[in-house]
Amino acid sequence: MTAIFKREFLSYFRSPVGYVAIAIFSFLSGFLFYSQFSTGGVNLSSEINSLRNFFVIIIPIITMGLFAEDKKRGTEVLYYTTPVNLFSVVMGKFLAAVALFAVMFSNVFIHMIVTKACDGAVGVGVWGSVIVYFFMAFMFISIGILASAVTDSQIIAAIFCFIMILVIQLIDTISTYFGNAVTALLGNFGLNSEKAASVGSKLAEGLSWLDPFDKTQDFRFGVFSVSALMFCLSVAVVFLYLAFRVLEKKRWSQG
């Protein structure tokens, strides 16, 4: 796993992908930081939370080639022919992507130093936001890895990953629309409007339970919830396992 991690991590810097991803992240975080700095108040939690909105762009860029590139070149066969556990392969690539994320995030640590140097606040809420940021990165990177594992086209992998992350980011809005649609539908079937609204809002509530942004929103205020982190981590495990199963399938279907 260590060898795969090293190879994948360094490969980001042997191609323009790693540099471009970090450049985009640096520009976006720099813009967010400067827009606060110039107004005389810096809320780093707010900056980090805003950066989460760019997962939808950055994650597909850094994960699209993880397996799709190997498949395109035909080097994936090495994973099946060498005595290496496929799950280690998945984990190695996953950790490499996470490490690239950590490198990107060093921008924010520099912002913290600047803020502190200007007597600004780097409180527990900021560290809460950092923790959430990484746990959500775990989750979204695992989705990107699955997307990359199911296709040999980097573009398709990126689009698949983009759509998945977008749906998760919009799950709150989707659940509200879904709840309203159910309410309207039940109302049309003649159900009492309050009962229909109750059913609609329960369904919307159920759907929005899956929203990781909602679960983790209090971290920025210094309120840490273990269950929210567990949710992100367990979703990451599910997607990594799915990616592993997709690769494993190829191993025995080739046989």
Binding site: D218, G222, V223, F224
Partner: peptide, 12 residues
């Protein structure tokens, strides 16, 4: 039970 308020002012 496993939610902790670490904010300095205990606002939460």
């Amino acid at each position: 039970a496993l939610t902790f308020d670490f904010s300095m002012s205990g606002n939460n």
